[in-house]
Structure formats: C-alpha cells, structure tokens
Amino acid sequence: MITRRHALALAPALGALLARPALAQGHYPDRPIRLIIPFASGGSNDIVGRVIAEGMGARLGQTLVVENRGGAGGLLGNEAVSTAPKDGYTLLLGGSGSFLISSLVQPKVPYDIIRDFTPIGFIGNAPNVITVNPTVPAKTMGELRDLARRAKPPLSYASPGVGTTGHVLGALLSLEFGAEMEHIPYRGTGPAITDVLAGRVQILTNAAAPLTPHIEAGKLRAIAVASPQRLEILPDVPTTVEQGFPNVLSSTWYGLLGPSGMPAAVVTALHGALNATLADAATKKRLDEEGVVLEPSPTPADYGRFLLSDRARWQEVVTRAGIRVE
C-alpha cells in the first residue's frame, strides 16, 4: 500500500493512446461481456462496478452486463469467474475485502487469487478513515493508542463483519497500539455506524463516503486517514503517516480481473478500455462521490504485483491477530 502510487502511476497520455484498443483486435468483443460483482446491488461495490461497466462498454462497442452474485464473503462470485471460460467474456470486480481479505480468513477457499485469475487493471481505492464516538477522549492517533493501552474494559471497534477490511484494520490498530481491543462485527456498514453513533461501540474504520456526513455533523470524530496522502473530501484530517504510524495503512480498493489463461490480446484490449474509462472526467466525478481515488495501473502486470504485495502484508496481520471466519 505504501508503494501503490509509485507502482500504479499512470502516464498522462495513456488514456488517449488506448482510447479504443478493441478496434485493433478485429474480433473481440463480438458479444456482450459479463461483469460479476460479488455483492448485492446498491452498495459501493455495485456503484463502482456499474460506472466501470458503462464506460468500458462504450469504448469496447459491446455491453458489459452486470451480474450481482453476493454471498460467502465474496467467494461465490469469485469462484464463478475463476472457473469461467478463458475467453474474456466473464470478468470480476475484485475488492480488498471480497477478493483479497476473504481469501485469507475464510476456512475453505476454492481458488487461489494469484494462480486462478488474470489481473487486468487496478481501478482505485477509497482510503479508510479511523473515527471515534465524540465521547471518546482522544483526538490523535497517539492519544487513541494511550487510551487503548489503559482502557479497562478494552476499547471496542465495530466492523461490517468478520473478515472485512474494517475488521483487519481494527486488528492492525490493536497490534500497532500494543493493546487489547474488542471486535464487534455487524451485518454491514449501516448497523455498525448506528451503534458507534449511539456510543455502544467506541471506534469505527471505514471508507470516507458513508462517514463524511457524520463527521461534518460532529457525530463522529475523525482521528486519521489510513493513507500516505490526505483526502480531498476531508482535507483537515491528518494521515496516519503524518502522526507517526506509517504501518497503519488501509483502503477499500477495486480492480478488474478475469479467469487465468486469458489471451494476451484480450487482456490488452480490456486494460486499455478500463484505463480510457478512468481517464474520463465524468467517470472521475462519479467515483469521487464514492470517495474513490482513481489509480489506473500502467500494465496488467503492475496490478498483479500489487496483489502479491498486498496479500503478503495482510497475511501477516491476519496471522498475528488470529483472524478466521468460523
């Protein structure tokens, strides 16, 4: 995560150069493409996936048909793509929680996220914000650490569920603080926010979009953005790096993948259409509203290298914290 902006820096002219790569292929795509989103409709993953599908479809000259296939923490949708034909007509919206974290914490995963998938391109990430109920007497990361170390009973943190990005970031905070903290899992972000607003749980980490209205209303206090850079929508909130916690980095990220063994020419066409979509001003505006910072990958291989490094980083956290979905 620390090096993503270096690894995924995109040359300014790339979008224009690859604006219509499919035309050079001649035959691909010649029918609609299926984009599987491993979540139910209506959430951030669904919104991001549909924006990307619309833009890529316009550039490829074929419709990307969105198919929501939620369940089992993302495993059902991921497996459907891993076993699909390798022809480029079944794609996956991969995410930090549903794709990567789930592969580390679920007891039985019927695929390998490196071996059984073809990376196409990184889309972007929504850096997570560390917030507390305003009654918590801490305004900085250092104060929150000191409070966590002396709290009896332990401070509690809410998450959208076991094995989610919010869960593993809370576990990382506990490890970095050197303090026991109690994890309270919920069935989704909404219920988690409700209980933190009510003061039943002290801490909540999540992408900025659903938290920003509550931060602006003074109902949540933002302690830090778990990113090397500040967020445009929360410019006054310092980062974890600024506050001396360089290892506390986390975001909800999105990327595009297909089954392993896809033809190189097809991957090139899809990667080009994705990056041309991300270079579009209207796309940027729509995803800005979701708190997503666009970071197109120069090549599919760059996205593949990011997957390897991010898996290794979170594997260490999951192992040290003993996180497992029962």
Score class of each variant (00 low, 15 high):
residue 3 T to P: 11
residue 9 A to P: 07
residue 13 A to V: 15
residue 16 A to G: 11
residue 18 L to G: 02
residue 25 Q to T: 14
residue 26 G to A: 15
residue 33 I to R: 03
residue 33 I to P: 08
residue 34 R to C: 03
residue 34 R to L: 06
residue 35 L to M: 09
residue 39 F to E: 00
residue 46 D to Y: 02
residue 46 D to I: 05
residue 53 A to I: 07
residue 55 G to H: 02
residue 59 R to E: 04
residue 60 L to C: 05
residue 62 Q to D: 02
residue 63 T to V: 15
residue 64 L to D: 05
residue 65 V to G: 09
residue 67 E to H: 13
residue 74 G to R: 04
residue 76 L to R: 02
residue 77 G to L: 10
residue 79 E to D: 06
residue 80 A to S: 15
residue 88 G to R: 08
residue 93 L to S: 08
residue 94 G to Q: 09
residue 99 F to V: 12
residue 108 K to V: 14
residue 111 Y to M: 11
residue 111 Y to P: 08
residue 112 D to R: 03
residue 114 I to K: 13
residue 116 D to V: 13
residue 119 P to T: 00
residue 121 G to R: 03
residue 123 I to W: 01
residue 127 P to I: 03
residue 128 N to W: 00
residue 130 I to L: 12
residue 134 P to H: 04
residue 138 A to T: 09
residue 140 T to W: 09
residue 143 E to H: 09
residue 145 R to M: 15
residue 146 D to H: 13
residue 146 D to R: 13
residue 149 R to L: 05
residue 158 A to G: 04
residue 165 T to F: 09
residue 165 T to A: 12
residue 166 G to N: 06
residue 170 G to M: 00
residue 173 L to P: 04
residue 173 L to H: 07
residue 173 L to F: 10
residue 175 L to A: 15
residue 177 F to T: 01
residue 179 A to Y: 03
residue 183 H to Y: 11
residue 185 P to D: 15
residue 186 Y to C: 08
residue 192 A to Q: 06
residue 197 L to P: 01
residue 198 A to L: 12
residue 199 G to P: 14
residue 203 I to L: 11
residue 205 T to E: 01
residue 206 N to S: 05
residue 207 A to S: 15
residue 208 A to T: 11
residue 209 A to I: 10
residue 210 P to C: 13
residue 212 T to H: 04
residue 215 I to C: 07
residue 221 R to T: 13
residue 221 R to F: 12
residue 224 A to Y: 07
residue 226 A to K: 10
residue 229 Q to P: 06
residue 234 L to E: 04
residue 235 P to V: 09
residue 235 P to F: 12
residue 238 P to G: 00
residue 242 E to F: 01
residue 243 Q to A: 11
residue 248 V to P: 10
residue 250 S to I: 10
residue 255 G to R: 04
residue 260 S to M: 09
residue 263 P to E: 10
residue 263 P to H: 07
residue 272 G to D: 09
residue 276 A to M: 10
residue 281 A to Y: 14
residue 281 A to L: 15
residue 285 K to C: 02
residue 286 R to H: 07
residue 289 E to S: 02
residue 297 S to D: 07
residue 297 S to E: 07
residue 299 T to S: 15
residue 300 P to R: 04
residue 301 A to Y: 02
residue 303 Y to V: 00
residue 309 S to T: 13
residue 311 R to G: 08
residue 313 R to W: 12
residue 314 W to D: 04
residue 314 W to C: 00
residue 315 Q to L: 09
residue 321 A to C: 13
residue 321 A to M: 12
residue 323 I to S: 14
residue 324 R to L: 15
residue 325 V to N: 03
